[in-house]
Amino acid sequence: MSLVLPSELVVDRFLPTVRAMLAARLTDRGMTQQEIAANLGVTQAAVSKYVSGDGGGDDRFRDDPETVATVDRIADGLTSGEMDGYDALAELLSLVRSLEDRGPICELHEEEMPELRGLGCDLCVRGLDPDVRAERDVLTNVRTAARTLASTPGMAEIIPNVGTNVGMALPDARDETDVAAIPGRIYAMSGRIEIPANPEFGASKHVATAVLAATDVDPDIRAAINVATDDTLLEAARERGIDPLEFDADYEDRGEHLRDRFDERDTVPRVAFHRGAFGIEPTTYVFGSSASDAADLLDALLEGSSMER
């Protein structure tokens, strides 16, 4: 029996195919071969081969709908600047894991090792710890939301002096270490949004307090963003059919107070705010089922409030 690791197939068959697909799509989108080489981590000569069709590869991946969709998404993101190398790598790693789970990589593995056929092999599937996957998904979601905020028009105007953060909880979160957020918070500098680091669990007690209060009342609400309270933003929420909840700013236990106010409503509102107190800036929370969901809502509210201004 010949021993072939799935990772060998990823390197020998999957990676050349995806690189060739990406090179072709990036060329179509106007990127130079030098730029493509820098993005793919290969030589310009290799890119030339990929573009000319001499780079090899496997049609099994070229024809796979999930692979095609992922390659198109990465090509669009790299071209527009909405993705960087980290984002592209995250997309490809997620794709590889999916293709190993009864997908083309699994099929190729059975072809290379016929002894696996009929065994219902789940070696790759078994290796995917669901807890690790949940943590990875939350971190990816928060990072995507932060990038959405950075590109949202008008966002810099509603970042409070203490900074903004976006947080998302794991399912069944118990404390702030189960909530991922941006370490150091998000700040506005010279009209630009600065994201100082990639998200981490336990990075923000402030936004985690609001998130945990929300999930206690409604487990489907697992994320929140804090911004400065702005009347035009609140009015934009009302125009979308959202009734913002006002709460007091100076409670010692903010989490308990929020839970009580949510219980009074018998729901978690998509928008909650306070008007501030001595030494406390007026703050608004935008809630969502995920960090990206909350960021998309804030984007829509800012678009609505800009029309009012």
Rank of each mutant, 00 (worst) to 15 (best):
A295P: 10
A214W: 08
L234Q: 08
T283A: 01
R259A: 08
D230Q: 13
T148Y: 00
Y187V: 07
D64M: 04
L3T: 02
F14N: 06
V166R: 10
V51M: 09
V132F: 05
F262H: 05
G85C: 07
S290C: 01
R309T: 07
D263H: 14
L301C: 02
A188Y: 06
D28C: 04
R192C: 01
T17P: 02
R136Q: 12
T140L: 13
S98V: 02
I36G: 05
D216P: 00
G163S: 11
I36L: 04
A134G: 01
V162R: 11
G118T: 09
S190N: 15
E157K: 13
I193L: 11
F247S: 08
G255A: 08
A249Q: 06
I195Y: 01
R259L: 05
Q44A: 14
V42N: 06
D231Y: 09
G154P: 06
E100M: 14
K205N: 11
D260K: 14
E112S: 03
L258V: 05
S204F: 10
D76H: 02
V4L: 03
D250G: 03
S292C: 10
G154L: 11
P153V: 07
L5D: 11
A213N: 12
T43W: 05
D129N: 13
E66V: 13
L233H: 03
T177D: 13
N226D: 15
D101V: 03
S204W: 14
M31D: 09
L233K: 07
L108Y: 04
G279E: 15
L149I: 04
A169H: 05
I36H: 06
L93S: 12
G77D: 11
V207D: 00
T267V: 03
D72H: 11
H274A: 05
E111Q: 14
A214M: 03
A75C: 02
A150F: 03
A272N: 03
A20S: 15
D54F: 12
E115W: 07
D253W: 04
K49L: 13
R192Q: 13
D122W: 03
L212E: 06
D84M: 09
I74Y: 05
M1N: 08
G304E: 01
G30T: 12
G184S: 05
D28E: 15
E194K: 09
A291M: 02
T232Y: 06
L233E: 08
M1Q: 11
R270H: 08
R133A: 14
G191R: 14
V271C: 02
L234Y: 05
N141W: 02
D216Y: 11
L119M: 13
T283G: 05
D131C: 01
G30M: 10
E112W: 04
D84C: 07
E264N: 08
A228V: 01
E135L: 00
N198F: 02
A134D: 06
R25T: 06
L108S: 00
K49C: 00
H206S: 08
R265G: 02
C124G: 01
E112N: 00
T215N: 07
E303A: 12
T17N: 10
L15E: 14
L258M: 15
T43E: 05
M189C: 02
P244K: 13
C106K: 15
L301E: 10
V207H: 07
G77W: 08
S2I: 14
V286H: 05
E135T: 06
D28M: 11
L99E: 11
V51E: 09
I186S: 06
E281C: 01
